[in-house]
Amino acid sequence: EDEVKKIVKRLIENGVDDEQIKEIVKRQGVDERIVDKVLKELK
C-alpha cells in the first residue's frame, strides 16, 4: 500500500487526473479500493 501511495503521489504531482491514475495503478494489478483509499488520503 505504501508503494501505491508513492506512485499515486508522483502521478498527482505530474498533473495526472484521478481517472488516469486509477487506470495506471489498476494495470499494475492493484485493487481499485486501495487506489480509491489512497486518492482520498492524498487529497
Results as ranks from 00 to 15, higher is better:
residue 28 Q to W: 15
residue 23 E to R: 12
residue 43 K to H: 13
residue 13 E to C: 04
residue 37 K to N: 06
residue 29 G to E: 02
residue 13 E to V: 07
residue 16 V to P: 01
residue 43 K to N: 08
residue 12 I to L: 15
residue 7 I to N: 04
residue 38 V to E: 01
residue 35 V to Q: 00
residue 20 Q to T: 15
residue 43 K to A: 10
residue 1 E to F: 14
residue 8 V to P: 00
residue 36 D to G: 04
residue 13 E to W: 10
residue 4 V to Y: 03
residue 8 V to D: 00
residue 17 D to I: 07
residue 9 K to W: 11
residue 21 I to D: 00
residue 3 E to H: 10
residue 1 E to M: 13
residue 2 D to C: 03
residue 5 K to N: 04
residue 28 Q to S: 12
residue 15 G to L: 04
residue 15 G to P: 00
residue 33 R to N: 11
residue 17 D to C: 11
residue 20 Q to M: 14
residue 8 V to R: 00
residue 26 K to T: 14
residue 39 L to N: 01
residue 42 L to V: 08
residue 32 E to F: 07
residue 39 L to A: 01
residue 31 D to S: 11
residue 36 D to K: 07
residue 42 L to F: 06
residue 40 K to W: 14
residue 11 L to S: 01
residue 31 D to P: 13
residue 2 D to M: 10
residue 4 V to N: 01
residue 23 E to W: 09
residue 42 L to M: 08
residue 14 N to F: 13
residue 20 Q to K: 13
residue 43 K to T: 07
residue 22 K to M: 12
residue 35 V to N: 00
residue 22 K to G: 02
residue 20 Q to P: 01
residue 18 D to A: 12
residue 17 D to E: 10
residue 25 V to N: 02
residue 21 I to T: 01
residue 2 D to P: 07
residue 35 V to L: 13
residue 26 K to W: 05
residue 35 V to T: 05
residue 30 V to P: 01
residue 20 Q to N: 10
residue 26 K to N: 05
residue 28 Q to V: 08
residue 12 I to D: 01
residue 23 E to C: 07
residue 12 I to P: 00
residue 11 L to N: 01
residue 27 R to T: 07
residue 9 K to Q: 14
residue 21 I to E: 00
residue 26 K to E: 05
residue 30 V to Y: 15
residue 38 V to A: 05
residue 16 V to H: 14
residue 29 G to L: 03
residue 37 K to H: 06
residue 13 E to F: 10
residue 43 K to V: 06
residue 35 V to W: 03
residue 28 Q to L: 15
residue 6 K to N: 12
residue 28 Q to C: 14
residue 19 E to L: 11
residue 3 E to V: 11
residue 5 K to V: 10
residue 6 K to Y: 08
residue 7 I to K: 05
residue 13 E to L: 13
residue 39 L to G: 00
residue 39 L to I: 10
residue 24 I to G: 01
residue 15 G to A: 03
residue 21 I to K: 00
residue 34 I to R: 04
residue 23 E to N: 10
residue 19 E to I: 11
residue 4 V to L: 12
residue 26 K to F: 06
residue 24 I to Q: 05
residue 36 D to E: 14
residue 32 E to K: 06
residue 29 G to C: 03
residue 7 I to A: 06
residue 28 Q to H: 13
residue 11 L to M: 08
residue 30 V to R: 04
residue 5 K to W: 12
residue 31 D to Q: 07
residue 8 V to Y: 01
residue 32 E to I: 12
residue 22 K to I: 13
residue 18 D to G: 07
residue 22 K to Y: 11
residue 26 K to R: 14
residue 24 I to V: 06
residue 33 R to S: 14
residue 11 L to C: 01
residue 11 L to H: 03
residue 22 K to A: 05
residue 35 V to M: 04
residue 41 E to V: 05
residue 22 K to F: 10
residue 34 I to T: 10
residue 12 I to N: 02
residue 29 G to Q: 03
residue 18 D to M: 14
residue 28 Q to N: 09
residue 14 N to G: 09
